[in-house]
Simulated scan of single mutants.
Amino acid sequence: MAPQDVTKLIVRISMKDRAAFDALYRQTSAKLFGVCLRVLNDRAEAEEALQEVYIKIWTKADRFAVSDLSPMSWLVAVARNHAIDRIRARKQPASVIDAALDVADPAPGPEAKAIAGDESRRIHDCLDELEQDRAAAVRGAYLKGESYAELAERHGVPLNTMRTWLRRSLMKLRECLER
């Protein structure tokens, strides 16, 4: 169908000519459906959008201005803009952001931080009561993740001696923390 023929149909539609509307639909619906489908990526939604596009064309045909642009460009623009409007409409409103206020923060609160800081201070004070080499072994094993073998080698003691140091040091730490 030539652009002039499409222009004549749109002009006749602006005068509410149903036969012209039917002819325009038959000639252009496949192309406009493709535009809607490309934008919406959903066949059912594109079919629904296409029907709404033709309602717009029926009601707004009088706004079509005959110009150097092809009438098909105008029809495609109507379809494309309508599909984009549907995408925008499906986005959730900004009020959903308010729901984020109810999401709990997994980070410890001020009270928990104060308690943890106090506990940390108590543990370090109790570690300071241990002999220096035993405290270093406990820190290495339980704060730095060093193995018993690494600690035994660094402190120059047998492996079983290192195990004994750590077990006795932990018992002393428990006694200190229970006071």
Rank of each mutant, 00 (worst) to 15 (best):
A152P: 00
L75W: 00
E48C: 04
V96P: 05
S95R: 14
V35Y: 01
V78Y: 01
K172Y: 07
P110W: 03
V78E: 05
R63K: 15
M171A: 15
N160M: 10
V76N: 00
P158E: 07
S70Y: 07
N41Y: 02
R139K: 14
S67P: 04
V35G: 06
P158K: 09
V39D: 07
E111R: 11
A100I: 10
P93N: 14
L159D: 05
R122K: 13
L130F: 06
R122I: 06
T28F: 03
A49R: 00
E146Y: 01
D128S: 13
V66I: 15
V76I: 15
P106M: 00
M1W: 06
L159K: 15
V66C: 08
P108Y: 07
A100C: 12
R38V: 05
A152F: 01
P3S: 05
T161S: 08
V96A: 12
A152D: 05
A44F: 10
K91L: 10
I13Q: 03
P93Q: 09
A79Q: 04
L143S: 14
D133V: 14
D128M: 12
A79W: 02
L9T: 01
V157Q: 02
L151C: 00
M171S: 14
T164W: 00
E45V: 04
A49V: 06
Q27D: 10
E175N: 08
R38M: 08
R122S: 13
V39W: 03
D125C: 09
A107L: 13
E111M: 13
E119V: 13
N41K: 09
A94P: 02
